[in-house]
Amino acid sequence: MQEFDKVGVVGLGTMGAGIAEVFARAGFHVTGVEIDGAALQRGRAHVERSLAKAVDKGKLTAEEERTILGRISFSTDRADLADADFAVEAVPERMDLKRDVFADLDRICPPGTILATNTSSLSVTEIAALTGRPDKVVGLHFFNPAPVMKLTEVVATVSTAPATVAVTAEVAKRIGKTPVVAGDRAGFVANALLVPYINDAVSVYERRLASREEIDTAVTKDAGLPMGPLTLADLVGLDVCLAVMDVLWAEFRSPRFVAAPLLRRMVAAGRLGRKTGRGFYVYGGADNPAEEPPTGVLAERVRSGAHGFDLAGLLLAPHIDDALRMVGDGYATAQDVDTAMRFGCGYPKGPLELLDERGVDWVTGVLGGMANAHLASIQWAPLLVDLMREGRQSLR
């Protein structure tokens, strides 16, 4: 493995500051760079608050906190990355910003430096093409909060050298993460599965098939998920969810990836979730009065299971079908899919582990019932069809 010690992080927002902290905790010397002094101070404060919280919880000693902070230097000059062995870009999801960062990194960093982007939705291939070293450019997608979440997606383009991928995956392990290696495709593994599931929940809510509390409670009780999809949408940010859906649509042009109209309207209204104080729920200490369950005919039929499925099935069966499509396409293995969703999204069981429990007949029954009820007409994943024809109930 390529040995190195010095890491650069460009962009010290919540995510970038978390990435800098993760590398410093693992023993790397980190230079964090921001656009100006005010942004730099905010980035430093992010790191200091996170470490102080770890000390308060007994996860770090005060001496360890000082040691970690001592490994991080802060700068507003990207030229200070001239000796970096590995550089991570964590600026906002705008290609113009990333173009500017990578042009500088390519010019400033030594030829052997690996340049990684933390993008969650933009093309790593397009970013790599902005440099004179596309073989040294890789995606390294962290999940929020970076010091806590164990998954990183290592994203290789058609130009990324195998050695670059191998080194980056080993680095991910060294900083305590579980890497999943994937190709450069819209949404990668986790977001390509998670965000359409969230979008389905928004559509269910928009069509008045269930209240927000019913939707969130259904999947937490049925599948043990840590939070419901509408609560999760607020946490992720509705603008982020919309951006991922639009990227998926642009790449695949499938009806499966059309953003729910309500999602687009809420973003236009500035109701982005926790970060703006209001999304599907209200934050900042305001009360969230429980909604009355809808009383329409379709809502009552879903609630009663009249079509052969319940509310949880309405959301989980398409989610499992998406995972089967990803595996059938050869983009990811079943193990990688389940690992990504468990370590990146907090699932107690991945979607294909849910398939093992429930069986192919359950998935096809729910999808068929949804079509019969005119709730959704999903073109089944070819792998799901193959499993059904072979009489198999799972992939394993």
Results as ranks from 00 to 15, higher is better:
F4R: 04
K6S: 11
V7F: 06
G8D: 10
G11S: 03
G13H: 03
A17T: 02
A20S: 11
F28W: 05
H29I: 13
H29N: 14
V30A: 03
I35W: 06
D36V: 00
A38M: 02
L40N: 07
E48Q: 14
L51K: 06
K53M: 00
A54D: 12
D56V: 02
G58R: 06
K59D: 06
A62V: 12
E63N: 12
E63T: 13
T67M: 06
I72N: 01
F74K: 10
T76N: 13
D77M: 00
D77Y: 07
D80E: 15
D85C: 00
A87D: 01
E89S: 11
E89M: 12
V91T: 09
D100Y: 08
L105W: 08
P110L: 11
G112E: 08
T113A: 08
S121A: 15
P134I: 08
P134R: 01
K136C: 05
G139R: 10
P145F: 08
P145V: 07
L151S: 02
T152E: 12
T152I: 15
V155Y: 07
P162D: 11
T164W: 02
V171P: 00
I175W: 06
V181A: 13
F188M: 13
V202K: 02
R208P: 00
L209D: 03
S211G: 15
E213V: 01
V219F: 04
D222S: 15
D234K: 03
D234M: 04
L235K: 10
C241E: 04
A243W: 02
M245Y: 02
F252D: 10
F257L: 08
M266G: 05
G270Q: 06
R271F: 15
K275P: 02
G277V: 10
R278W: 15
V282R: 14
G285P: 00
A286D: 13
A286V: 12
P289Y: 08
E291N: 10
G296P: 09
V297W: 14
V297Y: 12
G305V: 10
A306W: 01
G313Y: 03
L316Y: 05
P318H: 06
P318Q: 09
H319V: 02
M326R: 09
V327W: 04
V327L: 08
D329R: 10
D329A: 15
G330K: 04
D338I: 04
T339W: 09
K349D: 13
G350A: 03
W362E: 04
I378S: 01
Q379F: 07
A381W: 04
L387Y: 05
S394N: 10
